[in-house]
């Protein structure tokens, strides 16, 4: 079953000048076709300003399509009456860890979502415990979010979304402001949710290493989807990615360089283990 289905999805902003006249129409995204099956782990790549965050905000009904269609869990995102049901179905985690934690106590922050959708008190407590345990933050429940590391704050934010029991979580550059440890924490947590709870994950990022474990990757540029495929296929196009202001993981780049130098290496090597295996194979032949 498809949980997200975007057909020729477009979004235009109208800029007004000081007198309120239309000055400019900016196309943030145009003709985006992305479909996500339930339970998948999808990555959307793109440089800053490529439109990937605009697309993400549509999934959560924070903004509405101005052209094309978007269905989230079978609900039309254009219909304003679907706004809250869509937000319940697809939660969202944002970039800045500080600017999405609402309460001064961690457990209260996780309870914020369930409070909003009218969950009875006893059940809120159950959900808060379950969600905090899932991201490994249960021991911190009575603390203030201000003392946590960036990675921990993001895990609290993920728990806050989980407590609303969504089917899908959109993570909009959740690691951009974190250190390498924090990045690993968040990526690990999102893979766990995907594997253990079957939550559909849509990860938006420009860090290439984070994409390696995804089921399917979309690359966006200038508001369009310009590449899509499994990570291996995407990473085999090193030069194209570079032209899109992106990068490939170091191992992939090294493999690419070795291939250029004449070694018989396939494109899109993603891990160290794979490269060692390939080099072993080549040595064996000699």
């Amino acid at each position: 079953m498809k949980i997200i289905e975007a057909n020729n999805l477009s979004h235009e902003y109208i800029q007004h000048d000081e007198e309120g006249n239309v000055e400019n129409i900016i196309t943030a995204i145009s003709d985006v076709n992305i479909s996500v099956e339930k339970g998948q782990f999808i990555a959307i790549l793109g440089h800053n300003g490529s439109g990937k965050s605009t697309f993400a905000k549509h999934i959560n009904a924070l903004i509405h399509p101005t052209g094309g269609t978007l269905y989230v869990g079978g609900m039309d995102a254009k219909d304003p009456s679907n706004t809250f049901p869509i937000r319940k179905k697809a939660g969202m985690v944002f970039q800045n860890p500080d600017n999405q934690i609402i309460a001064s106590v961690i457990e209260e922050d996780v309870g914020f979502g369930p409070e909003n959708i009218g969950v009875p008190t006893d059940e809120i407590w159950e959900r808060v415990e379950k969600s905090l345990r899932m991201v490994g933050m249960w021991d911190y429940r009575k603390q203030s979010p201000n003392r946590l590391s960036g990675g921990q704050k993001q895990r609290v934010a993920i728990a806050g979304v989980m407590a609303m029991e969504p089917e899908c979580i959109v993570l909009d550059e959740p690691t951009a402001m974190l250190d390498p440890d924090g990045r690993a924490e968040v990526i690990r947590a999102s893979h766990e949710l995907n594997q253990k709870k079957g939550i559909t994950i849509i990860l938006i990022t420009h860090y290439m290493e984070e994409v390696v474990g995804a089921d399917y990757v979309y690359v966006m540029d200038k508001g369009n989807v310009v590449m899509e495929g499994i990570p291996r296929d995407i990473f085999s196009e090193v030069d194209k990615l570079k032209s899109l202001r992106l990068d490939v993981p170091q191992v992939t780049l090294l493999a690419h360089e070795l291939k250029k130098a004449g070694l018989d290496i396939a494109d899109g090597v993603l891990t160290r283990e794979a490269l060692v295996e390939i080099l072993r194979g080549i040595r064996g032949e000699e």
């Binding site: 440089h47 800053n48 951009a176 402001m177 420009h206 290439m208 570079k242 202001r245 992106l246 990068d247």
Partner: peptide, 8 residues
Amino acid sequence: TAGLDPAG
């Protein structure tokens, strides 16, 4: 370079 994309 915190928060910038690879080209940035």
